[in-house]
Design a protein around this nucleic acid. Structure first.
Lengths: 137, 137
DNA sequence: GTATCTGCAAAACATTTGCAATTCT
DNA sequence: AGAATTGCAAATGTTTTGCAGATAC
Protein backbone atom coordinates (compact mmCIF):
# COMPACT_ATOMS: atom_id res chain seq x y z
CA UNK A 1 0.00 0.00 0.00
CA UNK A 2 1.37 3.36 -1.01
CA UNK A 3 0.30 6.43 0.93
CA UNK A 4 0.67 9.71 -0.94
CA UNK A 5 -0.17 12.15 1.79
CA UNK A 6 1.12 10.88 5.09
CA UNK A 7 -0.34 13.81 7.05
CA UNK A 8 -3.85 13.00 5.85
CA UNK A 9 -3.27 9.31 6.39
CA UNK A 10 -2.28 9.84 10.01
CA UNK A 11 -5.26 12.13 10.60
CA UNK A 12 -7.56 9.53 9.10
CA UNK A 13 -6.28 7.11 11.72
CA UNK A 14 -6.76 9.51 14.60
CA UNK A 15 -3.11 10.59 14.91
CA UNK A 16 -2.11 14.26 14.89
CA UNK A 17 0.44 14.61 12.11
CA UNK A 18 3.35 16.27 13.87
CA UNK A 19 6.53 16.84 11.91
CA UNK A 20 8.30 13.97 13.69
CA UNK A 21 5.43 11.54 13.23
CA UNK A 22 5.14 12.28 9.54
CA UNK A 23 8.86 11.83 9.00
CA UNK A 24 8.95 8.61 10.99
CA UNK A 25 5.99 7.16 9.14
CA UNK A 26 7.42 8.19 5.77
CA UNK A 27 10.67 6.51 6.65
CA UNK A 28 9.02 3.34 7.89
CA UNK A 29 6.82 3.12 4.82
CA UNK A 30 9.65 3.79 2.40
CA UNK A 31 12.12 1.22 3.64
CA UNK A 32 12.16 -2.53 3.21
CA UNK A 33 14.54 -2.93 6.10
CA UNK A 34 12.11 -3.45 8.97
CA UNK A 35 14.14 -0.99 11.02
CA UNK A 36 14.80 -0.95 14.74
CA UNK A 37 14.27 2.14 16.88
CA UNK A 38 17.97 2.79 16.57
CA UNK A 39 17.86 2.50 12.78
CA UNK A 40 15.04 5.00 12.59
CA UNK A 41 16.71 7.37 15.00
CA UNK A 42 19.99 7.27 13.10
CA UNK A 43 18.31 7.63 9.72
CA UNK A 44 16.38 10.73 10.74
CA UNK A 45 18.54 12.53 13.27
CA UNK A 46 20.49 14.23 10.49
CA UNK A 47 17.33 15.73 9.08
CA UNK A 48 15.77 16.33 12.52
CA UNK A 49 18.74 17.20 14.74
CA UNK A 50 16.66 17.56 17.89
CA UNK A 51 15.00 14.18 17.49
CA UNK A 52 15.14 11.96 20.54
CA UNK A 53 14.78 8.23 20.83
CA UNK A 54 11.97 8.76 23.30
CA UNK A 55 9.97 10.35 20.51
CA UNK A 56 10.72 7.45 18.21
CA UNK A 57 9.52 5.04 20.91
CA UNK A 58 6.41 7.11 21.62
CA UNK A 59 5.57 7.47 17.96
CA UNK A 60 5.92 3.78 17.18
CA UNK A 61 3.77 2.93 20.17
CA UNK A 62 1.08 5.24 18.81
CA UNK A 63 1.33 3.73 15.32
CA UNK A 64 0.93 0.25 16.76
CA UNK A 65 -2.08 1.22 18.89
CA UNK A 66 -3.71 2.74 15.84
CA UNK A 67 -2.72 -0.32 13.83
CA UNK A 68 -0.80 1.40 11.08
CA UNK A 69 2.41 -0.41 11.99
CA UNK A 70 3.37 -3.68 13.57
CA UNK A 71 6.15 -5.15 15.67
CA UNK A 72 8.32 -7.90 14.28
CA UNK A 73 9.99 -10.03 16.95
CA UNK A 74 11.99 -12.10 14.53
CA UNK A 75 15.10 -11.68 16.63
CA UNK A 76 15.43 -11.77 20.41
CA UNK A 77 17.74 -8.82 20.66
CA UNK A 78 16.14 -6.33 18.33
CA UNK A 79 12.58 -5.16 18.03
CA UNK A 80 11.83 -4.29 14.45
CA UNK A 81 8.90 -2.43 12.92
CA UNK A 82 6.91 -2.68 9.72
CA UNK A 83 4.39 -0.29 8.17
CA UNK A 84 2.80 -3.18 6.30
CA UNK A 85 0.22 -4.67 8.65
CA UNK A 86 -1.22 -7.13 6.15
CA UNK A 87 -0.55 -10.86 6.35
CA UNK A 88 2.90 -11.69 5.08
CA UNK A 89 5.89 -13.65 6.27
CA UNK A 90 9.39 -12.56 7.19
CA UNK A 91 12.62 -14.30 6.35
CA UNK A 92 15.77 -13.49 8.27
CA UNK A 93 19.13 -14.27 6.70
CA UNK A 94 21.46 -15.71 9.30
CA UNK A 95 24.45 -14.54 7.28
CA UNK A 96 23.72 -10.91 6.30
CA UNK A 97 20.96 -10.43 8.91
CA UNK A 98 18.65 -8.79 6.41
CA UNK A 99 14.91 -9.35 6.84
CA UNK A 100 12.91 -10.08 3.69
CA UNK A 101 9.16 -10.12 3.20
CA UNK A 102 7.44 -13.02 1.53
CA UNK A 103 3.93 -13.79 0.38
CA UNK A 104 1.84 -16.14 2.42
CA UNK A 105 -0.87 -18.35 1.06
CA UNK A 106 -3.89 -17.41 3.15
CA UNK A 107 -5.29 -20.93 3.05
CA UNK A 108 -6.85 -21.71 6.40
CA UNK A 109 -5.37 -24.99 7.35
CA UNK A 110 -3.87 -27.25 9.88
CA UNK A 111 -4.76 -26.02 13.35
CA UNK A 112 -7.12 -28.62 14.71
CA UNK A 113 -5.39 -28.02 18.00
CA UNK A 114 -6.80 -24.50 17.96
CA UNK A 115 -10.48 -25.44 17.80
CA UNK A 116 -12.35 -22.84 19.77
CA UNK A 117 -9.46 -20.38 19.77
CA UNK A 118 -9.93 -16.93 18.26
CA UNK A 119 -6.95 -16.02 16.09
CA UNK A 120 -6.41 -12.28 15.72
CA UNK A 121 -2.96 -12.14 14.21
CA UNK A 122 -0.48 -14.44 12.55
CA UNK A 123 3.27 -14.06 12.23
CA UNK A 124 5.46 -16.31 10.19
CA UNK A 125 9.22 -16.20 10.63
CA UNK A 126 11.64 -18.20 8.54
CA UNK A 127 15.39 -18.32 9.10
CA UNK A 128 18.12 -19.37 6.72
CA UNK A 129 20.48 -18.13 4.03
CA UNK A 130 19.25 -15.68 1.43
CA UNK A 131 19.84 -15.88 -2.30
CA UNK A 132 22.51 -13.20 -2.28
CA UNK A 133 24.54 -14.83 0.46
CA UNK A 134 24.29 -18.28 -1.16
CA UNK A 135 25.65 -16.92 -4.45
CA UNK A 136 28.39 -14.98 -2.74
CA UNK A 137 29.76 -18.04 -0.99
CA UNK B 1 9.84 -36.70 22.43
CA UNK B 2 10.33 -38.08 25.91
CA UNK B 3 13.85 -38.44 27.28
CA UNK B 4 14.25 -40.97 30.06
CA UNK B 5 17.82 -40.34 31.02
CA UNK B 6 18.64 -36.68 30.68
CA UNK B 7 22.28 -37.18 31.65
CA UNK B 8 22.84 -39.61 28.78
CA UNK B 9 20.86 -37.41 26.45
CA UNK B 10 23.03 -34.39 27.20
CA UNK B 11 26.21 -36.44 26.77
CA UNK B 12 24.94 -37.73 23.46
CA UNK B 13 24.69 -34.12 22.33
CA UNK B 14 28.16 -33.18 23.51
CA UNK B 15 27.11 -31.47 26.73
CA UNK B 16 28.59 -32.43 30.09
CA UNK B 17 25.68 -33.32 32.33
CA UNK B 18 26.29 -31.14 35.35
CA UNK B 19 23.70 -31.14 38.11
CA UNK B 20 22.38 -27.73 37.07
CA UNK B 21 22.19 -28.61 33.38
CA UNK B 22 20.31 -31.82 34.05
CA UNK B 23 17.81 -30.06 36.30
CA UNK B 24 17.30 -27.23 33.84
CA UNK B 25 16.77 -29.59 30.94
CA UNK B 26 14.40 -31.76 32.95
CA UNK B 27 12.39 -28.71 33.87
CA UNK B 28 12.28 -27.37 30.34
CA UNK B 29 11.26 -30.73 28.95
CA UNK B 30 8.60 -31.29 31.57
CA UNK B 31 6.74 -28.03 31.26
CA UNK B 32 4.37 -26.80 28.60
CA UNK B 33 4.84 -23.22 29.68
CA UNK B 34 7.70 -22.17 27.40
CA UNK B 35 9.36 -20.56 30.38
CA UNK B 36 11.51 -17.45 30.52
CA UNK B 37 14.90 -17.38 32.22
CA UNK B 38 13.17 -15.93 35.24
CA UNK B 39 10.58 -18.70 35.30
CA UNK B 40 13.27 -21.34 35.21
CA UNK B 41 15.32 -19.61 37.86
CA UNK B 42 12.34 -19.26 40.18
CA UNK B 43 11.18 -22.79 39.61
CA UNK B 44 14.54 -24.33 40.45
CA UNK B 45 16.12 -22.02 43.01
CA UNK B 46 14.20 -23.76 45.82
CA UNK B 47 15.73 -27.09 44.87
CA UNK B 48 19.12 -25.60 43.95
CA UNK B 49 19.57 -22.74 46.41
CA UNK B 50 22.92 -21.64 45.00
CA UNK B 51 21.62 -21.44 41.44
CA UNK B 52 22.33 -18.17 39.65
CA UNK B 53 20.64 -16.63 36.67
CA UNK B 54 23.98 -16.50 34.93
CA UNK B 55 24.04 -20.28 34.98
CA UNK B 56 20.53 -20.42 33.58
CA UNK B 57 21.58 -18.08 30.77
CA UNK B 58 24.78 -20.03 30.10
CA UNK B 59 22.98 -23.34 30.11
CA UNK B 60 20.25 -22.26 27.74
CA UNK B 61 22.84 -20.81 25.39
CA UNK B 62 24.59 -24.19 25.36
CA UNK B 63 21.32 -26.05 24.74
CA UNK B 64 20.55 -23.80 21.80
CA UNK B 65 24.00 -24.18 20.27
CA UNK B 66 23.68 -27.93 20.53
CA UNK B 67 20.15 -27.68 19.16
CA UNK B 68 18.32 -29.42 21.96
CA UNK B 69 16.29 -26.30 22.75
CA UNK B 70 15.02 -23.28 20.87
CA UNK B 71 14.19 -19.66 21.51
CA UNK B 72 10.65 -18.43 21.10
CA UNK B 73 10.39 -14.70 20.44
CA UNK B 74 6.63 -14.62 20.50
CA UNK B 75 6.66 -11.57 22.73
CA UNK B 76 8.95 -8.55 22.56
CA UNK B 77 9.47 -8.34 26.29
CA UNK B 78 10.18 -11.90 27.20
CA UNK B 79 12.46 -14.48 25.67
CA UNK B 80 10.97 -17.90 26.10
CA UNK B 81 12.48 -21.34 25.61
CA UNK B 82 11.25 -24.68 24.38
CA UNK B 83 12.82 -28.13 24.53
CA UNK B 84 10.79 -29.21 21.52
CA UNK B 85 12.83 -28.24 18.48
CA UNK B 86 10.54 -29.91 15.95
CA UNK B 87 8.27 -27.89 13.66
CA UNK B 88 5.24 -26.66 15.51
CA UNK B 89 3.41 -23.41 15.98
CA UNK B 90 2.85 -21.28 19.05
CA UNK B 91 -0.32 -19.47 20.00
CA UNK B 92 -0.19 -16.68 22.56
CA UNK B 93 -3.38 -15.73 24.37
CA UNK B 94 -3.64 -11.97 24.65
CA UNK B 95 -5.85 -12.34 27.69
CA UNK B 96 -4.17 -14.92 29.96
CA UNK B 97 -0.75 -14.66 28.24
CA UNK B 98 -0.34 -18.41 28.10
CA UNK B 99 1.55 -19.87 25.15
CA UNK B 100 0.08 -22.98 23.54
CA UNK B 101 1.65 -25.33 21.03
CA UNK B 102 -0.16 -26.34 17.90
CA UNK B 103 0.45 -28.79 15.09
CA UNK B 104 1.56 -27.44 11.78
CA UNK B 105 0.86 -29.07 8.48
CA UNK B 106 4.30 -29.45 6.94
CA UNK B 107 3.03 -28.88 3.42
CA UNK B 108 5.67 -26.97 1.50
CA UNK B 109 3.76 -24.16 -0.08
CA UNK B 110 3.45 -20.56 -0.95
CA UNK B 111 6.91 -19.01 -0.89
CA UNK B 112 7.64 -18.21 -4.53
CA UNK B 113 9.26 -15.10 -3.18
CA UNK B 114 11.86 -17.29 -1.51
CA UNK B 115 13.14 -19.01 -4.67
CA UNK B 116 16.82 -19.63 -4.14
CA UNK B 117 16.65 -19.08 -0.39
CA UNK B 118 17.73 -21.83 1.97
CA UNK B 119 15.23 -22.18 4.80
CA UNK B 120 16.71 -23.66 7.96
CA UNK B 121 14.00 -22.95 10.49
CA UNK B 122 10.38 -21.91 10.59
CA UNK B 123 8.48 -20.26 13.40
CA UNK B 124 4.78 -19.65 13.39
CA UNK B 125 3.23 -17.35 15.96
CA UNK B 126 -0.49 -16.78 16.30
CA UNK B 127 -2.08 -14.32 18.68
CA UNK B 128 -5.64 -14.19 19.93
CA UNK B 129 -7.94 -15.42 22.67
CA UNK B 130 -7.72 -19.01 23.87
CA UNK B 131 -10.61 -21.38 24.40
CA UNK B 132 -10.52 -21.02 28.18
CA UNK B 133 -10.61 -17.25 28.12
CA UNK B 134 -13.44 -17.18 25.56
CA UNK B 135 -15.57 -19.43 27.74
CA UNK B 136 -14.75 -17.51 30.88
CA UNK B 137 -15.99 -14.23 29.40
C1' DG C 1 46.18 -31.07 38.75
C1' DT C 2 44.12 -29.10 35.06
C1' DA C 3 39.99 -28.15 32.55
C1' DT C 4 35.57 -26.70 32.93
C1' DC C 5 31.62 -24.91 35.20
C1' DT C 6 29.36 -21.95 38.45
C1' DG C 7 27.85 -17.77 40.43
C1' DC C 8 28.66 -13.10 42.20
C1' DA C 9 29.12 -8.30 41.01
C1' DA C 10 29.60 -4.96 37.61
C1' DA C 11 28.85 -3.48 32.91
C1' DA C 12 26.24 -2.96 28.85
C1' DC C 13 21.90 -2.27 26.40
C1' DA C 14 17.22 -1.51 25.41
C1' DT C 15 13.08 0.47 26.92
C1' DT C 16 10.15 3.23 30.10
C1' DT C 17 9.04 7.01 33.10
C1' DG C 18 8.85 11.74 35.15
C1' DC C 19 8.91 16.09 34.11
C1' DA C 20 10.07 20.57 32.16
C1' DA C 21 10.33 23.01 27.83
C1' DT C 22 8.36 23.56 23.37
C1' DT C 23 4.95 23.67 19.88
C1' DC C 24 0.38 24.00 17.84
C1' DT C 25 -4.08 25.95 17.44
C1' DA D 1 -3.80 30.34 27.09
C1' DG D 2 -4.60 25.42 27.04
C1' DA D 3 -3.72 20.89 25.48
C1' DA D 4 -0.76 17.86 23.36
C1' DT D 5 3.91 16.68 22.01
C1' DT D 6 8.73 16.54 22.44
C1' DG D 7 13.08 15.45 24.48
C1' DC D 8 16.31 15.24 28.32
C1' DA D 9 17.86 12.70 32.28
C1' DA D 10 17.08 9.18 35.42
C1' DA D 11 15.08 4.69 36.45
C1' DT D 12 14.08 -0.02 35.25
C1' DG D 13 14.78 -4.52 33.48
C1' DT D 14 17.17 -7.92 30.95
C1' DT D 15 21.21 -9.99 29.21
C1' DT D 16 26.31 -10.14 28.99
C1' DT D 17 30.97 -10.03 30.77
C1' DG D 18 34.99 -10.56 33.90
C1' DC D 19 36.74 -13.06 37.16
C1' DA D 20 37.47 -15.80 41.44
C1' DG D 21 36.13 -19.90 43.71
C1' DA D 22 34.18 -24.54 43.34
C1' DT D 23 33.71 -28.90 41.04
C1' DA D 24 34.66 -32.78 38.20
C1' DC D 25 37.57 -36.19 35.95
Amino acid sequence: MYVENVGEFLKAHGIKPSYQRVKIYEYLMGTMEHPTVDNIYNALSGEIPTLSKTTVYNTLKTFIEKEIAMVITIDENETRFDADTGLHGHFKCLSCHRVYDFEVDVREEDQETLEGFEIKEKQMFYYGICKNCKQGS
